[in-house]
Simulated assay, not measured.
Amino acid sequence: MKFYQFSKVHGKNISQFNSKFIMSRIINTDASASIGCMYLEENGIIGYHQAVVPQLLLILDGEGYVRNEQEQYFKVQTGDAIFWEKDEWHETKSDKGLTAIVIESEQLNPATFMALK
C-alpha cells in the first residue's frame, strides 16, 4: 500500500488554448482500465479482499480509513490516493462517509504523475 496526493497544490497550471486551470495528472496507460465511483455512506465499508489487479483509490470527498494485510488503519481524506498492488489484501471504511474514484488496470503506475504523501 502506497499513499499519493492528487490535490490542487500538487497540480500544474494549464494555460494552453487560453485556458486557466490546474490539473493533477493521475495515470496514463495503454492497457484497458476500469474506472468507477464509490459512495460510502455513514459507517460504509468496502470489505477486506484481495486486489484482482493493481488498484488506485482517489478520495474526492469525505474521509475514512484504509488498511492492507496489517491490521493498522490509516486515515485518508480528500486529495489522497491509495495504491494497492495486485493480490494485496485491503479494506476501506468510513464513519462519516466518503466518495472515491477507483481505477483498476494491469499497468497502473501512480508514481509517474503523483507525489508520495
Rank of each mutant, 00 (worst) to 15 (best):
D61Q: 15
G79M: 02
H10T: 14
E71S: 13
L40V: 02
E71K: 15
L56P: 06
S15T: 14
T112S: 11
W84D: 07
Y39G: 01
E69R: 15
K96P: 00
M23A: 15
E41C: 03
E91F: 09
W89P: 03
V53K: 15
G36V: 01
N68W: 08
G62V: 12
M23W: 05
A115G: 07
N43P: 03
V76G: 00
F113W: 14
K12F: 15
L57D: 10
F74T: 13
N68I: 03
F113V: 10
F21G: 08
K2G: 07
I101Q: 11
L60F: 07
L108D: 02
K117M: 00
L98V: 08
F17V: 01
I45D: 05
I14G: 03
D87P: 01
D95F: 13
E85K: 09
V102C: 13
S15P: 10
D30R: 04
I101F: 13
H49M: 05
G36M: 06
Y65M: 11
Y65W: 06
G79W: 04
D87V: 11
D95C: 14
D87C: 13
P110E: 14
Y39R: 01
M38G: 04
S32N: 13
Q77F: 05
W84A: 05
I45V: 08
Y48S: 03
G97N: 02
M114E: 09
T78Q: 10
F3G: 13
S24N: 03
M114A: 04
Q50R: 12
Q72I: 08
I46F: 14
A115P: 13
I82C: 15
M114V: 03
V66E: 06
G47P: 05
Y4C: 05
L40Q: 01
E42T: 06
K20T: 03
R25G: 13
G64T: 00
S24R: 09
I101S: 15
A81H: 12
W89L: 05
G79R: 03
Q70I: 10
A33N: 06
I26V: 05
V52T: 04
L40P: 08
L40K: 09
